[in-house]
């Protein structure tokens, strides 16, 4: 059943990308987490179903295992991938909507820049800060379309992503979590928690969706959710029914719980920034004393943008200042 399983990352791919001298692993973690979170936020603003946003984030991580991080701006890759994923789904989004949403999320007004608690008191966003002029729209759009081709090429057109979310619900039903014998509402609670674990795992730089099949992810999320809510699951090794070995379950349970620590570490590193860019990474590398930004793989590739477009963009960006 091809559509219930995913292609997984090969050992070489994981090994190369993590031990390669391209970028320190911690930096890679940061890029993955921040960009996945950006995609998630964009998915919400674009009112895409979570299934599409989730697929986009899986594709994003897959792409980065084939192509280098520094080939394109992270946010551009995120935008391009969400455009592509929505395009092949039942709810496509126009380039215009996507560029607008990303302009907003990358602007100073972006809600990603603030801490959750300060969001309520934040002053209304300043529309001028995320206005996208026609020329900037066109250059942005062209970049997205260029990267789309790169992504398709890198993925060999394998755009199918099997998600664990529907499986998890089926498994919960199989485990009788929604039956009347269980306290009212508890089943729903467990289901909600399970989905939360699965969505959190999407942001995890450990790339759990690239190393484990949906069945295992669903099982692990149920296991954790059941533990959180105190619901009683069968005493036997029920996960084996769902094709998940004890060891794999243990690994995933730890993996799914570890995002918090990674995020705390990265937030400390990047501070108030809601989105990180290539130049942030280069700066950080300089601070860390790793390479000078010109080392192999850390090169900034500007191939996607021609000089003309660049000029137009610069001219364009001048306008708000003068007007």
């Amino acid at each position: 059943m091809a559509h219930l399983s995913n292609p997984l990352a090969t050992a070489e791919q994981l090994y190369q990308k993590t031990s390669d001298n391209s970028l320190p692993i911690e930096i890679q973690d940061g890029i993955r987490f921040y960009t996945a979170r950006l995609t998630q936020a964009a998915g919400l603003l674009l009112r895409l179903g979570q299934d599409i946003t989730a697929q986009a984030n899986v594709l994003l991580f897959r792409y980065w295992l084939v192509d280098g991080f520094m080939n394109h701006e992270f946010s551009d890759v995120s935008a391009s991938i969400i455009y592509l994923t929505a395009k092949i789904s039942a709810s496509p989004r126009s380039l215009r909507s996507i560029t607008n949403v990303y302009a907003y999320l990358l602007s100073p007004s972006s809600p990603l820049n603030s801490k959750p608690e300060s969001l309520k008191t934040a002053k209304p966003p300043n529309p001028e800060s995320y206005y996208l002029s026609e020329t900037r729209y066109i250059t942005f759009r062209n970049r997205l379309l260029h990267i789309e081709g790169q992504i398709l090429n890198a993925l060999g057109f394998n755009t199918h992503v099997a998600l664990p979310h529907p499986l998890a619900i089926t498994y919960l039903q199989t485990l009788d979590v929604f039956s009347s014998s269980i306290r009212k509402g508890l089943g729903k609670e467990v289901a909600k928690r399970t989905i939360e674990y699965l969505n959190t795992a999407l942001l995890s730089p450990q790339m759990l969706y690239l190393t484990h099949q949906p069945a295992s992810l669903a099982t692990a999320a149920i296991y954790l959710a059941a533990k959180d809510s105190g619901i009683k699951l069968p005493d036997v090794e029920w996960w084996e029914v769902f094709d998940c070995e004890r060891e794999e379950l243990g690994f995933l349970a730890v993996g799914m719980g570890s995002l918090e620590g990674i995020v705390r570490r990265e937030v400390e590193r990047w501070g108030e920034k809601g989105v990180i860019s290539r130049s942030d990474v280069r700066e950080e590398l300089g601070r860390m004393g790793v390479g000078n930004g010109n080392k192999n793989g850390i090169r900034d590739s500007k191939e996607g943008e021609d000089e003309e477009a660049e000029m137009a963009r610069m001219l364009d960006e001048k306008i708000p200042e003068t007007s």
Partner: peptide
């Protein structure tokens, strides 16, 4: 480790190889 797991489960070169 993900790596060991991938060794076992990976669809060898067929995973997300480019065109």
């Amino acid at each position: 480790s993900p790596r060991a797991f991938a060794v076992q489960n990976g669809r060898s070169s067929n995973s997300f190889r480019g065109c």
